[in-house]
């Protein structure tokens, strides 16, 4: 938890999340809302997908930022020299990213209700699936963030590598959201949203040290 507390403290001081990531997400939602037009007829079908598309951009920005603070050569080297337990670092970084995504995700959900014509009740019912998806994206993003950290071309490499890993979570999240909007059962998608993070957590705990090296 020390790693998570450190990351959150740095984020509070730098306010990159607040002044850059959140406004970006809201603007992307606004553009998406404009693209959908004022007609709310298709909102139930289209809005969840649009919401998760914006969320994907935000997740990539948040993960990039979380690893950018570790990327200066001196900082990454001195952190390595502490000889820390990699599993602890992985869980700490993932927790910090998850908490940041919860904040941005909450703002985006409110934005989605306003700009994408999603009913407040639907948003409320979709909340558990969104939280699960954010957890999964934080865990997966941490693993791929570490993998691409310190490599030249990190900014472009992270989305390319992480997108296939994010795909099951994005699809499951979108389907669960749509199921709520269409009053259908989204249980199997919720199960997928639980299963994928569990698998990636196990992989992270086992392999984060290798990935870091």
């Amino acid at each position: 938890m020390l790693v998570a507390a450190k990351d959150l403290r740095i984020e509070l001081r730098s306010r990159v999340l607040l002044w850059q990531v959140v406004p970006f997400g809201v603007m992307a939602l606004m553009l998406t809302g404009l693209a959908m037009g004022p007609n709310s007829q298709n909102a139930a079908n289209l809005a969840p997908g649009m919401f998760y598309l914006v969320l994907l951009f935000v997740v990539i920005l948040t993960v990039s930022r979380a690893f950018a603070i570790e990327s200066p050569v001196g900082t990454s080297q001195s952190t390595k020299m502490l000889g820390l337990d990699p599993a602890g670092v992985f869980l700490g970084k993932a927790s910090a990213i998850f908490l940041q995504l919860l904040l941005v995700g909450s703002v985006l959900l409110l934005g989605a209700a306003t700009l994408l014509h999603i009913a407040a009740g639907v948003v409320l019912h979709a909340l558990p699936s969104v939280v699960l998806a954010l957890g999964g994206l934080a865990i997966t993003g941490t693993l791929y963030g570490a993998l691409t950290s310190g490599i030249s071309g990190t900014t472009t490499l992270l989305p390319v590598l992480a997108l296939p890993a994010f795909a099951p979570l994005l699809i499951a999240g979108e389907r669960a959201f749509t199921s709520v909007a269409l009053h259908q059962s989204g249980l199997r998608w919720l199960l997928l949203l639980i299963l994928v993070p569990v698998v990636y957590t196990a992989v992270g705990i086992l392999l984060y040290g290798v990935v870091e090296e």
């Binding site: 450190k6 200066p72 001196g74 900082t75 020299m81 040290g209």
Partner: peptide, 21 residues
């Protein structure tokens, strides 16, 4: 190698700490 890192002290070229702290 982590055990080696725990036992030695390192002073490198670059700044080694978090700028915002």
């Amino acid at each position: 190698r982590r055990e080696i890192r725990r036992r030695v002290g390192w002073l490198g070229h670059e700044g080694s700490f978090y700028d915002e702290l």
